[in-house]
């Protein structure tokens, strides 16, 4: 059981943040991680920037372009994460597109994940069937979790299939939309969350795509293990002059602390 599995076993109403590695500046990756942990975030997805992120909206696209211009690459990212486990204990998931990972070498990539203490990987353009045939044993050998996406259009039997085969969590795309496209929940989304909740799946579920405030966060927690915030965080950090302070304020606004 890795950090991610333990977290889901022990805690609910999880807040996860997605941010792009190497953005807004190349060396911001680890300071952002530390600030997120301090401010009470439960786990993170670190975006591995790609030149052509076709499942992402304009905010994440732009951050990816900037990160690449800053010199971010998988080699640089793993170098930055080399000692991260001395300072950060929350689960870390890497999220990105398949081509840079293939180029790096899938086995080498997974070895580096294990070495640096990365717990899981999300590759949206690696379809489940191809993952199962070619890569699942490589993930399992190293104890790296994989996560699949489901959408309102995913048929129930496919939801079951993905549920049975995920070793991390199911990433529920909250509306069939690219990231950062919507605010607030509508009836269509509520129906979808209810339908998935009532399937009583074995895997933890995180809602992503379209969560940007406390109201939408606490609403989706009624149906899932928690939510992932991406574009709203990136918009905030882009304009920040004091990362630690602004991150703390932002996280507090999503999930007020009891103390």
């Amino acid at each position: 059981m890795n950090r991610l599995n333990s977290l889901f076993a022990n805690k609910k109403d999880l807040l996860s943040i997605y941010f792009t590695a190497g953005f807004p500046r190349l060396d911001d990756t680890v300071p952002i991680l530390k600030a997120l942990e301090t401010s009470g975030v439960d786990f993170v997805e670190i975006g591995m920037p790609f030149s052509d992120p076709l499942a992402d909206g304009p905010v994440i696209q732009k951050s990816s372009t900037t990160a690449l211009e800053n010199g971010m690459s998988l080699t640089v990212l793993f170098k930055q994460l080399e000692n991260v486990r001395r300072e950060v204990s929350m689960p870390i998931v890497l999220m990105g597109y398949l081509n840079p990972v293939l180029r790096f070498g899938v086995e080498r990539f997974l070895d580096k994940c294990k070495e640096t203490g990365v717990d899981g990987v999300i590759l949206p353009d690696l379809p489940f069937e191809m993952y199962r045939e070619q890569y699942s044993h490589l993930f399992e050998e190293r104890g790296i979790s994989n996560t699949f996406l489901i959408t309102p259009q995913t048929p129930p039997d496919r939801v079951r299939l993905l549920d049975e085969n995920t070793t991390g969590f199911l990433y529920m795309v909250s509306s069939a939309a690219v990231t950062g496209a919507k605010t607030g929940l509508n009836q269509f989304q509520i129906d979808y969350f209810t339908r998935i909740r009532d399937m009583e799946l074995k895997s933890p579920k995180m809602v992503g795509f379209g969560i940007s405030n406390q109201e939408s966060f606490s609403e989706v927690c009624k149906y899932a293990n928690g939510a992932i915030v991406g574009s709203a965080f990136i918009r905030m950090i882009e304009n920040s002059n004091n990362i630690a302070e602004d991150i703390d304020g932002f996280i507090c606004s999503l999930k007020p602390r009891n103390d």
Binding site: L54, A55, L98, P124, D125, L126, P127, F128, E129, M130, F148, L149, I150, T151, Q153, T154, P155, R158, L162, V173, A176
Partner: peptide, 20 residues
């Protein structure tokens, strides 16, 4: 049947596009 000509082709698409 998976769309490969030898090692080329296939459908490397996010889940959002799979139903279509």
């Amino acid at each position: 049947n998976k769309g490969f000509y030898g090692e080329y082709g296939g459908a490397y698409i996010p889940e959002m596009l799979i139903p279509n």
